[in-house]
């Protein structure tokens, strides 16, 4: 009895050791494969030191002008349309008072106060969402894009509390139930219930040499480029025009600029 128990423990111990060492071997390999720097940029990938967006709001007459942009974004990323307050937003519109609450005054000119203003993730240089995320499911890429790993996100929603721009949405329910079948863009993953998502600055499009979907649909009214490059289109536009950013006093350094 005693002997058989001891031998059982021996075998159990040995197999546990073998299993765990095998598993660590495997995970070690997996880590090596995704180690930073071991991936190369694709041949036609667009790259930058710090991606930034400049929206020339003077060239948009009314909210209708933004509709094709919103549609392009939501189609490219399979963003579901969910009615109510548990909705998902990647690119949307709101009033000046809501978008720039700190710059509001009661006697603002009609054009500014009546216009619709486009909203998306600001891809901050100093993003609070990345700071608070307990699993690094949201992280900053080398080119300044704040990205999401939908498979690592535990759905704690700390990032939603942390983001001062309301740029993040949580999948309160299965988003696939609110998408067409087949989905608008089978090349981009759909999400599952219980994870947070937001605008990605179209990192997946940049990787294959395409500009972000909204930029493409804006036909020159939204500029996208490298903020660190003085010769880039965005830097030239910022040098030539007056521009503002949302809530600059918080020190997050948004990467989305609005030409007024």
């Amino acid at each position: 009895m005693n002997k058989s128990r001891r031998s059982f423990l021996k075998i159990a111990g040995l197999s546990a050791f073998a299993l765990s060492s095998g598993i660590t071997g495997l995970t070690g390999e997996a880590h090596a494969k995704i180690a930073p720097g071991s991936y190369a940029h694709g041949g036609n990938a667009l790259s930058a030191k710090r991606w930034a967006m400049v929206i020339d709001t003077r060239k948009f007459k009314d909210s209708q002008d933004y509709e094709p942009l919103i549609e392009a974004c939501h189609k490219a990323h399979n963003v579901p349309h969910i009615p109510g307050r548990q909705n998902i937003k990647w690119f949307w519109l709101d009033s000046y008072a809501h978008v720039f609450p700190d710059d509001m005054n009661a006697h603002l000119d009609e054009r500014t106060s009546a216009a619709s203003w486009p909203l998306l993730c600001n891809h901050c240089t100093n993003p609070p969402c990345v700071r608070v995320c307990p699993t690094q499911a949201t992280y900053k890429m080398e080119d300044g894009i704040v990205a999401m790993d939908y498979h690592r996100c535990i759905g704690c929603r700390f990032c939603m509390a942390g983001c001062p721009y309301g740029a993040r949405s949580f999948n309160f329910m299965d988003p696939r139930a609110h998408l067409t079948n087949p989905v608008p863009n089978p090349d981009f993953p759909t999400r599952m219930a219980g994870v947070v998502e937001k605008c990605t600055f179209c990192a997946e499009r940049l990787a294959v040499g395409q500009l972000p979907a909204c930029v493409e649909a804006a036909k020159g009214r939204i500029l996208f480029g490298d903020l660190e490059d003085p010769a880039s289109e965005v830097r030239k536009a910022l040098a030539a025009n007056y521009s503002i950013r949302r809530k600059p006093s918080l020190g997050t350094q948004p990467g989305v600029y609005y030409i007024i």
Partner: peptide
């Protein structure tokens, strides 16, 4: 999913 709760995009 957490849709059964009263939480929302704004009160997350």
């Amino acid at each position: 999913g957490l849709t059964v709760t009263g939480m929302s995009r704004d009160v997350s």
